[in-house]
Design a protein around this nucleic acid. Structure first.
Length: 623
DNA sequence: CTAGGGTTAG
């Protein structure tokens, strides 16, 4: 064997580095020549490894890999390596061509890679392989495996189940799973995952509970499934059971758990996860770090979110978007824009989601011109076709600032038909600026698209109420009755002692209801001394609830607030998560409570955060 | 010197 140039020595130990080092075709040819002449390429394993890493690097090298392929007598091993590289690469559909051109009969390995390619294709964003239908491909890949007698291989079986899941066909996954004679753990887990991510969490849970075959991945699938459909409290319960069962808690687990905490606004629990992973010396990967940033942001702890963000070594578009969005929903528009431009300097390309966040940041902080410039840059600079949401955000931007003419001409200039979000933004702006005529106009446009939009009806009614137009208010209510529009009940949640407690309007079910009632009386008494006058203008939408016998006619956030004052130790923040927007009365009320009781109160509403302190709110009464 | 299932932003 001829000696190789010294500099190639270390590269040989790892063909992947070798390929990476060959930045041009010329380098590659040189390396290839050396390997060939020195006789090293005769080694079957090196040949296979070289091929595989060539194939997975990029298109130039991929073609080189194909060139290399016929240089040696065909072995399935080498061809399967290529298949694997293609299936796991950027353009998974290339594996189909390679599969068709196999010079030997495919074996079970070939099929696992083929299945993987179909899975990757189904999961990939549209546009990776235009013209290919992931569902059709999934079906034919499965059929092909059956025909060739490899559908009984357990790796193929589990792969097929998750392939159908990735293609969004839970039914097909079910059928495929039902035909497996004795599914192993991985197959069962694949099915649990297919059901859980396909939105059928209860079915997933049933399968999960009914099998002794469960490992940590199955637990992870269950937790992720609950989070996926917004049943985060159940996700946390499963996590508790998982720890009790002694299953291995890993990164995937914690990412889902953090997402659950973010949804619930469960800061204490989220902090616990953070220290848990620190104590266990886990590496904070991009994914985990992003989940932490998101959790802290959505719990209103922006400073903590930014600390994690700054400490991260690697950040991707998800990370940046989470951070930008965190600043936006906490009303920190300036900082949000600054971070966004830093993102540009860091060379991370924003996507549509990033722009939703930036536009919302501008809108919350009243940065109209900056926001408009940002909207224009979506297409001109970033070559993204603006989404309907981007239009909606921009209408919101103008509308909040009271620039109705700009808002209207912006809508008129839209190249696409405005959707309910656009009219909803205009409707909300009409409420903020008490513009009845514009509100009616927006409402008519909106109900032409979505006649039963409950939030819109509430907004319109509030507009009437604020202008003392009680006839208008009752008209809206009659309209709602006639159309059967149901208002989503308000719900406020508060975390106490590691548990999340929920309060509904008129809810009397809480075990400490008596205490809450007494505290409410005390609160109102002490607030009255400060000159608080109940503002019942916006409250009328809970009349239905008030009519219920004995129900207390208070919005859920007041109940949660009272509970917080009772249960949480003095000096700690009270954090409340509400599923709807806060009404004016509750907002005033909470401001006063923060002063009279000398407590900081953080309230997350449907759209944003309110940080109450000393009788003022961070939103500057602009929401 | 080839395999399967779970994980982040609106």
């Amino acid at each position: 064997m001829l000696p190789l140039p010294r500099r190639l020595d270390p590269l040989l130990r790892d063909p992947a580095t070798l390929v990476a080092a060959a930045s041009t075709q010329r380098h590659l040819r040189e390396l290839h020549a050396h390997l060939l002449v020195s006789g090293r390429l005769a080694s079957r394993s090196l040949h296979a490894a070289l091929l595989a890493s060539l194939a997975s690097s990029d298109d130039r090298h991929l073609s080189y890999a194909r060139l290399l392929l016929p240089r040696r007598p065909a072995t399935l091993l080498v061809h399967n390596s290529l298949l694997r590289a293609l299936a796991c690469g950027q353009r998974p559909h290339l594996a189909f061509g390679a599969f068709r051109d196999l010079p030997l009969a495919p074996d079970n390995y070939s099929f696992t890679f083929l299945v993987r390619a179909a899975t990757a294709l189904a999961a990939s964003t549209p546009g990776v392989a235009p013209g290919l239908d992931a569902n059709l491909i999934a079906g034919s890949v499965h059929a092909s495996a059956l025909r060739r007698g490899h559908a009984t291989d357990t790796h193929v079986q589990s792969g097929v189940v998750s392939m159908y899941a990735a293609a969004g066909d839970v039914g097909a996954a079910r059928t495929a799973f039902a035909e497996i004679a004795s599914p192993d753990v991985v197959c069962v887990t694949a099915m649990v995952g297919a059901l859980a991510t396909g939105g059928e969490v209860d079915a997933a849970r049933e399968l999960f509970d009914g099998t002794p075959q469960r490992d940590h991945v199955a637990w992870n699938a269950m937790i992720a499934g609950y989070v996926h459909v917004g049943r985060s409290r159940e996700a946390l319960k499963v996590f508790d059971k998982m720890q009790h069962a002694g299953a291995a808690v890993g990164e995937a687990t914690l990412v889902s758990v953090l997402t659950a905490c973010a949804q619930l606004g469960a800061l204490e629990r989220g902090k616990w996860v953070h220290s848990y992973l620190c104590n266990r010396g886990m590496r904070v990967s991009v994914t985990l770090g992003t989940a932490l940033v998101d959790m802290y942001s959505k719990c209103g702890a922006v400073a903590a979110a930014m600390d994690v963000f700054e400490s991260m070594g690697e950040r991707n578009v998800y990370t940046w978007t989470s951070a930008v969005s965190g600043l936006a929903m906490n009303g920190m528009g300036r900082q949000c824009l600054e971070l966004f431009s830093r993102m540009g300097r860091a060379g991370v390309e924003p996507n549509g989601v990033t722009f939703v966040a930036v536009l919302r940041g501008c809108s919350m902080a009243g940065l109209v011109d900056e926001g408009r410039a940002c909207f224009d840059s979506i297409k001109s600079k970033h070559r993204i076709d603006p989404w309907l949401e981007h239009y909606g955000c921009t209408v919101d931007l103008y509308g909040r600032a009271g620039r109705f003419d700009d808002a209207i001409s912006f809508i008129n200039a839209m190249p696409v038909e405005p959707h309910e979000g656009v009219w909803g933004a205009l409707l909300n702006a009409s409420r903020i600026h008490k513009n009845v005529e514009l509100g009616k106009y927006a409402m008519n446009k909106l109900i032409a698209i979505e006649s039963k939009n409950d939030a819109a009806h509430v907004l319109l009614s509030n507009i009437y109420a604020e202008s003392q137009n009680w006839k208008g208010v009752s008209n809206v209510r009659n309209m709602m009755k006639a159309k059967g529009v149901k208002k989503l009940p308000g719900c406020s949640a508060i975390e106490f002692d590691g548990r999340v407690y929920e309060f509904f309007v008129g809810g009397k079910t809480h075990p400490r209801y008596k205490e809450i009632e007494m505290m409410l009386a005390e609160m109102t008494e002490r607030l009255k001394i400060q000159g608080y006058v109940a503002n019942t203008k916006d409250v009328m939408f809970d009349i239905e609830e008030e009519e219920k016998e004995g129900a207390i006619s208070l919005h859920s956030e007041k109940l949660a607030l009272a509970f917080g004052l009772i249960a949480l130790p003095e000096g700690t923040e009270i954090r409340i998560v509400k599923n709807l927007r806060v009404c004016k009365d509750c907002h005033d009320y909470t401001k006063l409570v923060s002063k009279v009781f000398n407590r900081e109160i953080v309230m997350r509403d449907r759209n944003r955060f309110h940080h109450f302190k000393d009788g003022a709110c961070s939103c500057k009464d602009y929401w």
